[in-house]
């Protein structure tokens, strides 16, 4: 009886220590954060309600966000996130885009206001004040964040396969 009690006490102590360690171990959360971030598509479109994939990953790791918020990642990403975080997968909150897109500036119409540069999360736009701007197609993730700020509506989305 005493032995059983001692064993139970030992297990309780060990369990608490392990649980505390898991909570307090910064590397562990760091690697989890890195893995969650890597599982996101890096479109940086903010459709998840967070200003980019990294912030969404941080919220996920802290348990402050649902796993079904990233439309570019689609159902596949929901599955991976649920697995990584040990929670149940849910259907995607918004429908996923049908195919990858890229932004294209109609250069003849650009007035060089630089608003799109400020909006682009991955520095994929080149240009200078009052000069023509252009999108670096290799770097553009198709996040659409540059479309709304353009005052002359000269940025269009085209399917990536046509670029």
């Amino acid at each position: 009886m005493a032995a059983a009690l001692a064993l139970a006490a030992l297990m309780a102590v060990a369990g608490t220590v392990l649980a505390l360690l898991a909570r307090r171990w910064p590397e562990d959360t760091q690697t989890l954060l890195a893995r969650v971030d890597a599982a996101l598509p890096q479109t940086q479109c903010a459709q998840c309600g967070f200003p980019g994939c990294r912030p969404y990953a941080e919220a996920l790791v802290q348990g402050d966000a649902a796993v079904n918020l990233c439309p570019p990642g689609g159902e596949a990403t929901v599955q991976v996130l649920a697995e990584l975080l040990g929670v149940a997968a849910q259907p995607l909150a918004q429908c996923a885009p049908t195919e990858p897109m890229k932004a294209l500036i109609i250069e003849a119409d650009c007035i060089g206001c630089t608003l799109c540069i400020l909006a682009c999360p991955v520095d994929a736009i080149m240009g200078a004040t009052k000069h023509m701007h252009t999108v670096l197609l290799d770097e553009c993730t198709g996040c659409e964040l540059c479309i709304a700020p353009c005052p002359v509506d000269c940025i269009e989305l085209v399917p990536a396969r046509l670029c």
Binding site: D37, A38, P41, Q42, T43, Q44, G52, C53, R54, P121, V122, D123, A124, D138, E139, T141
Partner: peptide
């Protein structure tokens, strides 16, 4: 591409 976007996003931030 995702890796590059991740790096560029970090640099911009």
């Amino acid at each position: 591409m995702a890796e590059r976007a991740q790096a560029r996003f970090a640099v911009r931030n």
